[in-house]
Amino acid sequence: MDEKELFVKAYKAMALSRALDRKIVMSQRQGRVGFYTPTIGQEALQIGLSMTLEKEDIIYEYYRDVPFMLHRGVPPAAIIDQVMGNSSDSEKGRQMPSHYSSKEFHFMSVQSPVAANLPPATGAAYEIKYRKKKNIVVATFGDGSTSTPDFHAAMNMAAVYDLPLVFLCENNRWAISLPIEKQTRVEIWKKAEAYGMRGIKVDGNDLFAMYEAAKKEVETVRKERKPVLIEAVSYRIGPHSTSDDPNKYRTAEITDGSEKDPLIIAEKGMIERNYLTKEEIEKIKTDSKETIDRIFDEREKIPAPKPESIFTDVYEKPNWIIEEEKGEIL
């Protein structure tokens, strides 16, 4: 894939993700979806990194990584199935929306407690090291996660054991209502040094800057088999979740479609580099919306999983206690 194709694919994933995000948020307001954590504003930084990864790399993502998943090939239908919790959902409707999982595309199952994916990511990276494999692990998290003991434990373990692990901090500057200034006295990327790890900061709103930085860092991790912390600075354009009203605690600095919106920045760059024309961009956006509308309507018709499904997969084989309780309830 040459650079142009690489970026066209990236832009298409950004546009598709934005269309999907808008659709789910709107559907939540219409009562068609229960809950959602919008990803708007974080497309460029996720996809800029995703562009540099290989199929066999393993991702320990968090709940705002839909753009990342779409770019790596997870079908929008799978995201919608998860959000609906329908019978086609690979998780069998067990997790609330935004908690994805895709073994096929090497995305780990997402949990709610922030940063809890980070210590397990070190274990996955250790397996790679132990088995002398060539792939790497990427672990993503928000700025809020950097206050947790899990972040500290994982950063330390990754450094101590020289693990091939990229820590991507998606600094959208808000941990629900708490701004980054009130979360830490030190810039996030600088924390890496205390662990004996490389740390960099990049403009996560700029797809091209993100790609260049990520490419360099990912190559270094692949070659040196040591971890890195990338702080990608962006902005949470939407609320934390559909249950949150940011007007209570902040004035919006970047809005959907404004000059600083990462999607608009990417469009300008695509035109400047002659990767896409204005007309092509408009067509991609229209097509994305139509695709998402069509898939969403289609997936919405899929029924809920069968009630007995809530009693499976607690253990490989159900024990007598679960069997008995199932009999009492169903």
């Binding site: 320990y60 210590p119 990511a121 070190t122 274990g123 996955a124 250790y126 330390n156 373990m157």
Partner: peptide
């Protein structure tokens, strides 16, 4: 390992997942 129970258990979970 370093002295960090959540790191020990967390790392073990990731190993098991792999």
């Amino acid at each position: 390992t370093p002295l960090v129970e959540l790191g020990i258990v967390g790392m073990a979970i990731g190993m098991a997942l792999s």
